[in-house]
Simulated scan of single mutants.
Amino acid sequence: MSLTGGNRHDVTQLMPLPDAIPHIRGTRGRPRHRPRRLFADRGYDYDKYRRLLRARGITPKIARRGAAHGSGPGRTRWVVERTFARLHQCKRLQTRYEIRADLHLGLLQLAYSIICLRRLRTSFRNDQ
């Protein structure tokens, strides 16, 4: 997760985000440092960033502007949109009122913990 000011465009964090991902464990051998693919919506549709991602060995799966909805990575991106919807259940996070970034980050982490707790409760109820 990357936290920026509310008035900054999201694309400014596109290149630092893959660098912040920890080692990805998998099968035998050296762990991967970067993901194989990066899914994004139309807001990230710039050829400059596609080239930079390919140079790092990441295949960009970015929706094209002007293409019909439901095509491209939209089928995979619903997971991200669902997470945003769950975060917005915490009304304080819909609009950022906190000026200090550490307070906003703390509220985000608390909301993530509540979401995980609710998810675990439902999964344990279904197992019994």
Rank of each mutant, 00 (worst) to 15 (best):
D45W: 04
N7I: 14
A40S: 05
R36L: 03
V79W: 06
H69W: 09
A68Y: 04
S71D: 11
G29D: 11
L17W: 05
G57Q: 01
I21K: 08
R65P: 11
R75S: 14
D45E: 11
A20E: 08
T12K: 11
L52F: 03
R36W: 00
A20M: 15
L17Y: 04
R28K: 08
Q13H: 12
P73C: 05
Y49Q: 12
R86M: 14
Y46D: 15
A63T: 08
A63G: 10
K61P: 04
V79T: 11
F84K: 01
I24W: 00
P73A: 07
T76V: 14
R64F: 01
G74V: 12
D47M: 01
R50I: 13
W78Y: 05
K48M: 12
V79H: 10
G29K: 09
G26R: 04
A20L: 15
S71M: 12
R77S: 08
A63E: 13
T27M: 06
L38Q: 10
K48Y: 10
G66D: 10
V80D: 00
G57L: 01
L17A: 12
R82I: 11
Y44Q: 08
C90T: 05
S71I: 08
C90N: 00
R32W: 04
L14R: 08
W78K: 05
A85Y: 06
K61C: 11
A85G: 15
G74C: 14
T76N: 03
N7R: 15
A55T: 05
A20K: 08
R86G: 10
T59C: 04
R8C: 15
T83I: 13
D19M: 14
R34F: 04
R32Q: 12
H33R: 14
P35D: 13
V11H: 10
I62P: 03
A67Q: 10
G29S: 11
E81T: 11
R54M: 08
H9C: 15
P73D: 12
A67I: 07
I58H: 03
V11A: 13
R28M: 08
P73H: 03
N7W: 06
L14G: 07
